[in-house]
């Protein structure tokens, strides 16, 4: 993408929800990243709080345990002055009686302004978004998407290197089960980066190359001339014979260590969405190398990106409030447009 910064600022982001990065335009992504830059600054001040979202309610609805992402969204909401409520629901107990739809309807009756939802099933957040009147942010659905992670990764890269276009980026590890990988593949591809994926064949989904990535089984080949090495977490239950034979073997062939990193560009940087399995997918010393590792920056950018998303998705709402109009019909009309254009094509 070229010379789009001005256009992006005027086009903005015309979706009701943020359900994924698939289908987002380069302009929309740039708009969100630019907006997030300001929130990086705000978050570094001693007084981090603004009142932009004062009076609005954000519900963090997590059907899957998470500390980092939930905390990051909670901080983002609070720094913007919103009322933030955390709800953690064990999906197994939901399945027995109350359905996801019932939960959505119940919460909807409480008039939240934004629902931040994480769910273990792919597509569940979209399903929920169809049943509520407020904006929904996907904080991770199954193996599908985790858009704010991809946005924070993009912001981290952009601040370090200054651009995304033309960068060679390797995503390494459990691509099969990774929503982070999918969201990054869409976003980075849209922004003009060249994305490679590398994993043992058992951890690669079918026809992944049709998502516009180059596929490698060999880590050293994949890292050749890369600017960025993104590592993914490997869940423990997948380490012992089901998808890979052992953690020892996995680290030997697919764990990132300084030896394998030599194949990448001399100034290549390392990223990881966390939480890390040190000694399994990444060498511990490398993870802590402040010259090479952007892992801590990613956490910081996470809050800023989520502030930008909360800001963007409530803009219509705040506009109406300022105009003193609580006209439900026009609000619904705007919502319906947003829903039909969708975050996905």
């Amino acid at each position: 993408m070229t010379g789009s910064e001005f256009a992006a600022a005027t086009l903005g982001f015309d979706h009701r929800h943020l359900l994924g990065t698939e289908g987002l335009s380069a302009d929309e992504i740039t708009f969100l990243l630019d907006l997030a830059e300001g929130y990086v600054e705000q978050s570094r001040r001693s007084n981090k709080k603004s009142s932009l979202l004062r009076g609005l309610t954000v519900i963090n609805l997590f059907f899957e345990s998470s500390t980092r992402t939930r905390t990051s969204f909670e901080l983002a909401g609070k720094r913007l002055g919103a009322d933030v409520i955390n709800m953690s629901i064990a999906w197994s107990s939901i399945k027995k009686g109350e359905t996801l739809i019932d939960t959505a309807m119940t919460l909807n009756a409480m008039h939240p302004d934004v629902l931040v939802v994480r769910h273990p099933d792919s597509g569940a957040v979209k399903l929920l978004s169809e049943k509520v009147n407020c904006a929904v942010i996907n904080a991770g659905d199954g193996s599908h998407e985790h858009p704010t992670q991809a946005l924070l990764d993009a912001l981290t890269i952009r601040r370090r290197i200054g651009r995304l276009e033309g960068l060679r980026i390797a995503i390494c590890g459990d691509i099969l089960h990774s929503r982070v990988a999918r969201s990054n593949i869409h976003l980075l591809g849209t922004m003009g980066a060249r994305v490679r994926v590398v994993a043992p064949p058992t951890l690669l989904p079918a026809e992944i190359e049709r998502m516009g990535v180059e596929v490698f089984f060999d880590m050293t080949e994949a890292l050749q001339d890369c600017d960025i090495v993104m590592m993914l977490r490997l869940q423990t239950e997948r380490m012992h014979g089901s998808f890979v034979p052992s953690t020892r073997e996995y680290f030997r062939f697919y764990g990132l260590d300084s030896e394998k990193l030599k194949a990448a560009k001399p100034d290549a940087v390392i990223m990881h969405p966390g939480p890390m399995n040190r000694g399994i997918e990444i060498d511990s010393e490398l993870a802590d190398d402040i010259d090479r590792s952007l892992i801590r920056q990613q956490v910081e950018m996470g809050v800023a990106v989520r502030m930008a998303c909360l800001d963007t998705l409530t803009q219509d709402l705040r506009g109406h409030n300022l105009a003193g109009s609580a006209d439900g019909a026009s609000l619904d009309g705007a919502s319906a447009d947003g829903a039909s254009s969708g975050a996905r094509p």
Binding site: S143, A206, E207, M211
Partner: peptide, 15 residues
């Protein structure tokens, strides 16, 4: 069905 669409949707495929 296992394939590109299942991969995009993050759904487990049946080959």
């Amino acid at each position: 069905n296992e394939g590109e669409i299942a991969t995009r949707l993050g759904l487990a495929g049946i080959p």
